[in-house]
Design a protein around this nucleic acid. Sequence first.
DNA 1: CGTCGCCTTGAATCATGTCAACTACAGTGG
DNA 2: CCACTGTAGTTGACATGATTCAAGGCGACG
Lengths: 239, 239
Amino acid sequence: MTGRRSAPLVGSLGAQVRGELLSVVRRRHQAAPGELIIEQGRPATALAMIEEGWAMRFRDLDSGCRQIMDFVLPGDFCDPCVLIAERSDFSVAAITGLTYSLIEQAELLELIRRVPHIALALWWDEAAEADRLRSHLAAVGRTNARERIAQLLIELYFRLQAIHQTIDHRFAFPLTQEMIADATGLTAVHVNRVLCRMEREGLIRRDRRALALTDFVRLQEIAHAPMALLPGRLLRQAR
Amino acid sequence: MTGRRSAPLVGSLGAQVRGELLSVVRRRHQAAPGELIIEQGRPATALAMIEEGWAMRFRDLDSGCRQIMDFVLPGDFCDPCVLIAERSDFSVAAITGLTYSLIEQAELLELIRRVPHIALALWWDEAAEADRLRSHLAAVGRTNARERIAQLLIELYFRLQAIHQTIDHRFAFPLTQEMIADATGLTAVHVNRVLCRMEREGLIRRDRRALALTDFVRLQEIAHAPMALLPGRLLRQAR
DNA sequence: CGTCGCCTTGAATCATGTCAACTACAGTGG
DNA sequence: CCACTGTAGTTGACATGATTCAAGGCGACG
């Protein structure tokens, strides 16, 4: 024990753990936009980690439409539950061109035997995703289109900022309006109306696959964003 | 290793692990309806497991309304993320009178040192909750009021059946229509209309705090329930 | 230069929300 | 035992946010 009774007891080492994982990866994989990385219902066999590009976690409903759960950004695991779940209950597809690495289950378990912390990092990731899911659910269930979209944009901003993919309040933005609709539980047409209005009001600016949050403060008010969001908000840090 | 390469590698022992946990519990706690067990934003200090009664996991939004994430039934952990999260990002409140047990963090870690499987059981629970959250999100984002409510009722039915709290398709039902509304992202008034119509159509019957799913097959069709849901659906079982 | 995916816009419609009143109990205290 | 009070459920009339359908624009790409 560390001596301090209230010392953080478990936690993620973040970048360090990711490095450890990458050290056992033989080869990187590529995926073209639209390609499926993980398919709903298929047995879970390997851990996938995004290195470059955006992906989305989603589920197809039998009514033909789909719900996007969240977006998977560089450094995120596609399926932190790979050791727990028998088969995946969601799909993951590339949005942009993608570079990712796969670690087979057997390899992963071997690695965990040497570095138990890695299991915690996965658990951590799972918990962070659950947190995001709860925020997302609250947004879809209890706020209107404008608030939901503002919330999504701000969440993406914070996550991208954490991996240094923003300049000021601007970042590359590969999502179609239909994807935003599938994530927020709206129709593409309505998403369009809301985005256009936001632009007219000077809240955002869009050009050439990029997005700028030109009035970040007001956007945060609209989103009711309580404060700096996910990256490291609620999670115990080791050391 | 077990010999079979595809053998389940990790997993939950379910009831056995729960028994193990209960063996270290000194005293049971009680809570009256409405009482808070876990409060959003407070440091996470102990693992809570429901023994009797229903609770709900929810979040208050600053617009004053709330979103219920899911319901916590006997045998469920309130906060499987207690070892991972610095502070809780949701609240848990008693719906009925409640009996639950608390296991302090230090105690829990000690127990895990002796029985590492317990950590997996918690992780498992976390993953099961994430799965439920994804289904819930898809329902709220992409289905109408009738489908959502049917889905909720059927999910509760399956979970209660798994713990032997159903007789035929009937079970004690302590939720108010406002709670159903807060869970499904609707208003209490609209929930009322939908429930009344379901009753008129012979899908359900309500009386004295109990609910009967009188036309289970049709209800399942409405809910698009793909098949037997959560309990043990996607999860590796040890042995 | 035609095609295709994505974005944009308008008009009509629909699902759900809002407001408001009223009923039915269960609990409480006199 | 009754009068009060409060919570939950029910119902109607009306308002509105979001969807649907439909048409057209615009840029990328073969």
